[in-house]
Amino acid sequence: MNAINRDTRRASRALAPLAFGILSLFALPARAAPPLTYMIGDGPKAYPVVSLTWGLLIISLIVITIMTVLVCLGAVHRRSPRGDLSIEAVPLLHGGAGLRWVGFGVVITGIVLFGSLIWTMAVLARVSNPPAGKSPLTIEITGQQWWWKARYLSADPSKVLTTADEFHIPVGQPVRVKLIGADVIHNFWVPALTGKMQAIPGKINETWLEASKPGRYRGQCTEYCGWQHAHMAFFVVADPPDVFQAWLTKQLEPAAPASAQDQHGQQLFQQHCGLCHTVRGTLAGGTVAPDLTHVMSRETLAAGTLPNTPGNLVGWVANPQSIKPGNNMPDLFLSGPDLTDITTYLRTLK
């Protein structure tokens, strides 16, 4: 099994430059691979699938080429000498050698299709479960209109972390993902790491993923789930194991106490935002919206909609309905000073 894995990985690495080459043909001005490409994988779950994708693509291209050449030959080639239109020239009257070729074609096609079937089933079997032996981290991810809530599960309740939209994982370790749909059906997809898996209300679906190198991998909801479906992205951030542990420890801490000048902002936050959002360590304990205890550690706001900058933060808090119309966060009609105090306080939640 390990040898096969190694072979697959080697094959994927060999294919990667080819993949880049062909991709760059399609997107000449772009320098990096597109964020949602599925032609390049970065983990043991993606490697066999990417090899299969390329393999089937190449087989299809070869078949198309052979068929095109044969059809062209058939159109150009004449069985009888030019000018001889006598009916005796039709070969069916003399043994029917043409039918034998049909037989050859069916057998060759059958072998190729059967081989592809076996290959596909082998790949599906290999990626269906995480490698046995390791005790993997489990994250419970809930898709809802229109963001992703994550709970890092642990036997110790004080170590259960709730966060949103940006999920850190350790490199080189398989991670189990339990998927729940909170309202309608969503679909969890991180093309570079794992295939699609639906998040269905009333049901827990399980999938897994593993990154083989550090990086920031974009994921996207791929089941149409309403008005802001397109603004329902997330990121899987693969860190080296020690960096991941440090991140987890930091995230589990409550927010640092507000300084004297941020007290008013914190009060306003609790009053205006605390029934939906949680900031651990304060009176804000709502659970219907993203946990903001360490919101400044995330690179985007509103499920990948905006880069997390002071300007975007203020614009988002002041007018979420113009940026992401129909989302569950209401326009609060805050005054300028209140908006400034709340967002200044939010910016301390590192």
């Binding site: 900058t309 002071p310 300007g311 975007n312 933060l313 203020v314 614009g315 988002w316 007018n319």
Partner: peptide
Amino acid sequence: GHLGCGAC
């Protein structure tokens, strides 16, 4: 563009 002035 980077700062997000366009959010407001």
